[in-house]
Design a protein around this nucleic acid. Structure first.
Lengths: 217, 217, 217, 217
DNA sequence: CATGAATGAGTCTTCATTCAT
DNA sequence: GATGAATGAAGACTCATTCAT
C-alpha cells in the first residue's frame, strides 16, 4: 500500500526521506533491543548502536528516552487502532456475527503481523507513560466498536460503550497470552475461531428482549 | 502445608514472627513505592525507607532488588492462583454455569481485594523476570481450570487445556482494563455479570456434539 | 579559634565529625580543582577524585554540582561577611578614620588569608547562581557598614546605604585586582595603606556641611 | 590603523562588509544568549541560531567557541580601553581634578552605554581565558592612566603605576556593583559624582610633600 | 561558501550493593 | 543483626566540532 504511494511520489525530499528512514531505524532497533535485552537494559546507547548511529543522532529525533519509547509504542498502537477503526467502518450495519468475525480477524492480523513487536511493547505499555497512551488508544477503539455495535440490525445494546469495552478487552487477553508465548500448543491455530465462538453469542444475547442469564430461554 | 508447623507451635517463634513481619512490611512498602513512583523509581533505598528499615536490612531478606520484586509479584500471583485453585476444587463436578460463576467470582474477589497492588504489579510482571513467573502461575491456574472443566457433567471439552486458556485469558483482559482505570463508568458494577454472560455460553457450546457456529441450534 | 572550640567539646559525634570532615574535604578539593583547571573543567568527578572519595559520596552531601559550588562560595562569602560584620560592630561609634582602617584591615585579612580560594571563587560568583549569592552577602555587608557609619561621631551621612555601597565596592575592586594577579609589584605591600588613603577622605568629606567638591574648603 | 585602507576603498569590498556584518551579528547574538541563558548554556548552536546563521558559518569566522567568546570580550574591553586611552590623552597636562572627572565620565559612559553587554561579559572575563585578556586590557589602561597622571601640573606621584592601578580598580568596583543590579536605588544617579568625590582627594593628596594621612593638613 | 545532521567524548546523576561500625 | 555511608559502574543527555551535500 505504501509502495504505491512511493511509486507515485518520485521520492520524498532528501531531508524528509532521510529523517523518516532514521526514525524507522530507531523504531526497529528499539523493538530489537527490547526483545533481546528487556526494558531495563533498553538503553539509548544500545538502541543507537543497533540502529547504526550515534547517541547524538538519536537525540536529534527524540528529546529523551521516554519520548522514543512512547513514539514506538504510539506508532504500534496507532496501527492497531487504525486496523480496528477500519474493521468497524467496514462492518457498519452488518449483523453481529459479521462484526465479530471482522473485528477479530482484523485485530489478530495487526497484532500477529509482527509478534515480536507486539510482545516487546507490553513492557513499555506497563510503565508510567505507556499506560496513558494505551488507554487513549483503547478508548479510541472502544468508541469505534461502540459505534459499529450501535448499527447492528440484529441486536440492540443498552450500553454500547460497556459492551465495546468487554469485547475489546476480552479479545486482548487471549491475544496477549498467545504473544507472551506461554499458551497451549493448539492455541494459535484456533485462536481466531475461539474468539469468534466466545464473542458472537455474547453480543447476540443482547439482541433479544428478556436477556438476563445466558441460555435462559 | 505450614499449618502443621503452626499447630505445633501455636505462637510462631519470635524470630520467625519478626521475619514474617519484616517481609510483610517490605512487600507493602514495595507496592506503595511502585504505586507512587513507578517501577523505574522503585529503588531499594526508597522501599527500605518506606518500610521503616535500612537498605542493609532489606538485603538480609532478599539477595537483590529483582528477588524482592519477584517475591512480591510471586506472593500476589500465588494468592490469585490459590483462589482459582480453590474455586476449581469447590466447583468440581458442578454444571458449567456454576463453574463459570464460581471462577469469575473468585477471580474478581482476589484481584479487586487490593486493586492498587494488582495494578502496581502489572509493570513488574511485564519485565524480564516477571513474565516467566506470571506464565508459571497462569499455567497452574489453567491446569486447575482444565481439571475442573473435565469434570463438568453437562459438557465435554475436546481440548480442556485450550478452553481453560481461553477462559482465563478472557477473564484477565477485562479485569486488567478495569484495574488500569480507563474503563467506562458502569464497567466495575457489571463486570462480574458480564463476564458470566460472556463465558457461560462459550463453555456451554462445547457440551453438545455438532458444535460449529455459536448459537446454531 | 575553631581549635579551641574543639578542645572544649571533646569531639563531635562520629557521624557529624565525619560529615563535617567530608564536606571540608569537598570544599578544599573544589577550590583546588577550580584553581588548577578552571570552572569549566571543574567536574564532579574531578572534585571527588581530588577529595579522595567517589562521586557517589559527593552526591551524599550535595544534591548536584551547582549546590556544591554554591556551598563553597557561600561559606567563603559568609566568612567575609562575618569578618566585616565583626569589624563594623567593633568600630561602632568610633571616628570615621578608625572605621575605615578597621574595615579595610578586616576585609584584607579575610580575603588574603587564602588568596587561592578568593581568586578561584570569582568565576563561581560570576555564574548564574553565584551572582545572587554574592549580592545577598554584599547587601548584608552594606547594611552592617551603613549601621556603623550612622554611628560615627565626626560625620553625618545623608544616605548611609549609598555611602556603604561605595565604600565596599571601592574596596572590592582593588582587592580583586590584586588577587587576580595582574597588579603592579608594589601593589600588595601598600594596598592597605592606599585603601585607607582612598576611603578616609571620602567619608570625612561627608562630615561637614557644605560638602560639594572634594577639598573645597 | 585600518582608516588608511578605508580611505582608499570608500566602500568596503562586499566580502569585507559582509564579514564585518556577520561578526557583528555573532557578537550581538552572543551577548543575548549570554544574558538570557548564562555562560553554561551559551552554546555555539544557540548563538548561531540567534544570529540567524548555521553553526558551520560560525566556524567560518571563529576557530572554536572560546575564540568567539574571547573575541566578544576583547572587542568590549578594547572599546573600554580605547575610551580610557582617549580620556587620558584628552586630559594630558590638566590638573588632577580634571583628570578624574574626565576619566570617570568616560569610563561610565562606555560601561553603561550597553549595560547588558557589560554585565554579560563578567562571566566570560572570569573564566580561564578571559582573565588574561582582561588583565592585558587593564594593564593598557593603567599605563595610559599612569602617563596621564605623570603629566599633572598640580601633583607628583611617587609610583604612578600603582596609583593608576588604584584609580582604575576603585572605579571598576562600584561600576560592577551597579551593573550586577544589586546596588541601592540612588546609586546609579549619583555614581559619577561619588566616584569623583572618592578619587579626586585621593589623587590630590599625592601632590603635596609630607602626605601621610588623608586630610592631615 | 552555507548548511545542519552526525559524531562521540565527556558530564552529571542515580542506584544496587557492600561492609565497617 | 541493624545501619547507612561509600562505592563506582552505568545511564541519560549535551554540545563543540566536522564534513558531505
Amino acid at each position: 500500500m505504501s509502495s504505491d504511494a512511493e511509486s507515485l511520489t518520485p521520492r520524498k525530499s532528501p531531508v524528509q526521506a532521510r529523517a523518516a528512514a532514521t526514525v524507522e531505524a530507531l523504531h526497529v532497533a528499539t523493538i530489537q533491543v527490547l526483545t533481546r535485552e528487556g526494558l531495563a537494559r533498553c538503553t539509548t546507547t544500545r538502541i543507537a548502536e543497533r540502529a547504526g548511529m550515534s547517541v547524538g543522532s538519536l537525540y536529534q529525533y527524540y528529546p529523551n528516552r521516554d519520548a522514543l519509547l512512547a513514539g514506538v509504542l504510539e506508532r504500534h498502537l496507532d496501527g492497531v487502532a487504525a486496523a480496528v477503526d477500519r474493521a468497524c467502518r467496514g462492518n457498519h450495519g452488518k449483523p453481529v456475527s459479521g462484526m465479530v468475525s471482522g473485528l477479530v480477524s482484523a485485530f489478530l492480523a495487526v497484532k500477529l503481523r509482527n509478534p515480536e513487536e507486539s510482545k516487546a511493547l507490553y513492557a513499555v505499555a506497563a510503565e508510567r507513560g505507556g499506560a496513558e497512551l494505551a488507554a487513549r488508544m483503547q478508548a479510541r477503539m472502544m468508541t469505534a466498536i461502540a459505534t459499529m455495535l450501535h448499527s447492528a440490525p440484529d441486536a440492540e445494546f443498552g450500553d454500547p460503550a460497556l459492551t465495546a469495552a468487554m469485547l475489546l478487552s476480552a479479545m486482548i487477553g487471549p491475544v496477549r497470552l498467545l504473544l507472551e508465548g506461554f499458551a497451549p500448543p493448539e492455541f494459535e491455530a484456533t485462536l481466531e475461531q475461539e474468539l469468534v465462538h466466545l464473542l458472537t453469542p455474547y453480543l447476540q444475547s443482547h439482541g433479544r428482549p428478556g436477556r438476563r442469564a445466558a441460555g435462559d430461554e
